[in-house]
Amino acid sequence: MIVVNLDVMMAKRKISSNELAEMIEITPANLSILKREKAKAIRFSTLDKLCRALDCQPGDLLEFVDDEYDEED
């Protein structure tokens, strides 16, 4: 599964949700969906804006975690 480390990056950059939402021009509700890992997909344009606002790489925000073994157990 893909884990979104947005809250970690936001804490590192000391930026609030509302501030970030305003910077990247998305609604706080949509940002919350992304933070809570409820999102089914993320647009390249949103990822681009996030990376620009948080001064990071996509890999800093998204992480692949192999959870297949966990599901079988």
Binding site: I26, N30, L31, I33, L34, K38, A39, K40, A41, I42, R43, T46
Partner: peptide, 8 residues
């Protein structure tokens, strides 16, 4: 629709 709603 769900996929569309949850695309950020």
């Amino acid at each position: 629709r769900e996929e569309n709603d949850f695309t950020v």
